[in-house]
C-alpha cells in the first residue's frame, strides 16, 4: 500500500466514524423523545456522550486526510468544484451538527440539578428539553449535508 492508499483508507475510516456517530445520535434522538425522568435522561446522555468524540474524530479526519489527498494526488486539486463543494458542505454539516449537540445537551445539566434537588420523578421540562424541535431540525440539516458529501465523493461531478 502506498502512502496515498493509507491516507485514503484513513479518510474513509474517518467518514465511517462521522456517519456512525450521526446514526448513534439519530437513534438516541428518537429514543429520548418520550423520556421525562432524570435517570433515563442521564442514561441516554451516557450513550450520546460516546457519539461526540466519534463524530469529532470523523469531522477532523475527513477534512485532514481529504485535503491531504487533494494536494498529494495530481489528478485532483483543492480548488476543483466537487472538492470545494464538499468542503462547504463539511463546514455547514459540522457547525450545524455542533449546534444540534448544544440543544440536546441542555437536558443533562437540568437533569443533574433535578437529581441534586431530589426531584427524580417525571418532569415536563425534561421532556421538552429531550424533544428539542430545534435540535431535531439542526441534526436533520447536518445529516443532509453529510449525505450530500457522500454523493459528491462518489460521483465527483466535474472530475
Amino acid at each position: 500500500m502506498s502512502l496515498d492508499d493509507w491516507i485514503l483508507a484513513l479518510h474513509v475510516l474517518s467518514a465511517f466514524a462521522l456517519v456512525s456517530g450521526m446514526v448513534l445520535f439519530w437513534i438516541v434522538i428518537v429514543a429520548v423523545r418520550n423520556v421525562d425522568t432524570v435517570g433515563q435522561t442521564l442514561a441516554y446522555g451516557r450513550v450520546m456522550g460516546v457519539g461526540t468524540p466519534v463524530v469529532l474524530a470523523g469531522v477532523a479526519g475527513t477534512i485532514l486526510f481529504g485535503a491531504w489527498l487533494a494536494i498529494s494526488l495530481d489528478r485532483y486539486q483543492l480548488w476543483d468544484g466537487w472538492i470545494i463543494g464538499a468542503i462547504v458542505l463539511w463546514a455547514i454539516g459540522s457547525e450545524v451538527g455542533r449546534r444540534s449537540g448544544v440543544e440536546y445537551r441542555k437536558a443533562l445539566p437540568r437533569a443533574t440539578e433535578l437529581q441534586a434537588a431530589g426531584q427524580e420523578g417525571a418532569s415536563g421540562e425534561l421532556r421538552a428539553l429531550n424533544r428539542s424541535p430545534k435540535g431535531l431540525l439542526l441534526h436533520t440539516v447536518s445529516t443532509l449535508a453529510f449525505v450530500l458529501i457522500l454523493i459528491d465523493m462518489i460521483w465527483k461531478p466535474g472530475a
Binding site: F16, S20, W26
Partner: peptide
C-alpha cells in the same frame, strides 16, 4: 455506514 452506526450504538448502549 448504517450497519456500523447501528453496531456502534448497540455496543455503546449495552456497555453503558
Amino acid at each position: 455506514m448504517i450497519l456500523v452506526g447501528g453496531m456502534l450504538t448497540a455496543t455503546t448502549a449495552l456497555a453503558l
